[in-house]
Nucleic acid binder design. Structure first.
Lengths: 156, 156
DNA sequence: ACCTTGATAGCAAGTTACTTGATAACCACG
DNA sequence: CGTGGTTATCAAGTAACTTGCTATCAAGGT
């Protein structure tokens, strides 16, 4: 059978493979593996990403998280409210008043995100098996620069 | 207002940013830009990827394309049939018999995919503005290796 | 001949992770 | 006091998948 990874020739003008396309493909692969692994912990990849961001930041609101993840406030709110109902996070009104609710991980949420981390560690170990340390850091750096260049909000 | 790009401190144990997460974020950004640009040409990102693959390969069937893109045959079939109805591709029965239909780009499909290429060129130009040529090739190479490592089908 | 096997195309329904649009609460400002 | 900005939340819709099923076609085994 034809190898799905190799172009298999037969093209009049051969356009080079786009980096964007490589990003799409890799994202699909990681997500498929991660969805599968996280299902055993009862969370989705989207939820895991929100939980990770909550651990990293200082009690952001749902709208803050939406800006971070480049999604609409409504989309993030659905995720956050679901996580709250399942006891993985809790939300308190902002001390300075206002309508914003500051979200934090509960102990249960923290232990969940730690278990998910181990699942992702296993996937990245496979993914990076043939990649040396220098190439990994170069990859992370370049990906960060690319994402920053495509930001909609113009920043310094 | 908080910068959504920087972690903004305040975390007990600071876990390092995962490469997977960087891939997810960049994919989201590229897709948002590309969906927007391709809408003017009347195709979606998914359709554009299928059209690109059709230009690169020698008249694959819908099932072939599904394997290439890591989706189910049904999912790819929906895309292919829609593209056929819109006259961007045509399908002929396989000369060796069988049920498979070999898909090819029509002239209209080819000109469409070329116009889409220019849209993607513009996006990648922005994305790579601060990235030198060596880092770009290193990025492409590492992404390819990572995707290959996560393949479900074991190949040499 | 007959029947399974394997690969394909196609239909139907359901899911996930979003989207836009609208409503309402809350604060600060002029 | 009203006006604008930010937030949460409800409602409906969409893109891009998924699983499950059926039907067609060719090749191989008995």
């Amino acid at each position: 059978m034809t190898d799905p990874g190799a172009p298999a020739a037969a093209s009049p003008d051969a356009p080079p493979t786009r980096v964007s396309y490589l990003v799409f493909r890799l994202e699909r692969r990681i997500r498929a593996c991660l969805d599968d692994a996280l299902a055993r912990h009862g969370v989705t990849t989207t939820e895991y990403m929100a939980l990770s961001e909550l651990r990293l930041r200082d009690a952001p609101s749902s709208a803050d998280l939406a800006r971070i993840a480049f999604v609409t406030p409504q989309a993030m709110n659905l995720v956050i409210r679901d996580l709250e109902q399942r006891g993985l996070i809790r939300r308190d009104p902002h001390p300075g008043g206002g309508r914003a609710l500051r979200a934090r991980l509960t102990p249960k949420g923290l232990s969940t995100v730690r278990r998910c981390d181990h699942s992702l560690d296993a996937i990245e170990a496979v993914m990076f098996a043939e990649i040396d340390h220098q190439a990994r850091t170069a990859l992370a750096e370049t990906l960060t620069l690319c994402a920053r260049a495509l930001r909609p909000d113009t920043r310094p």
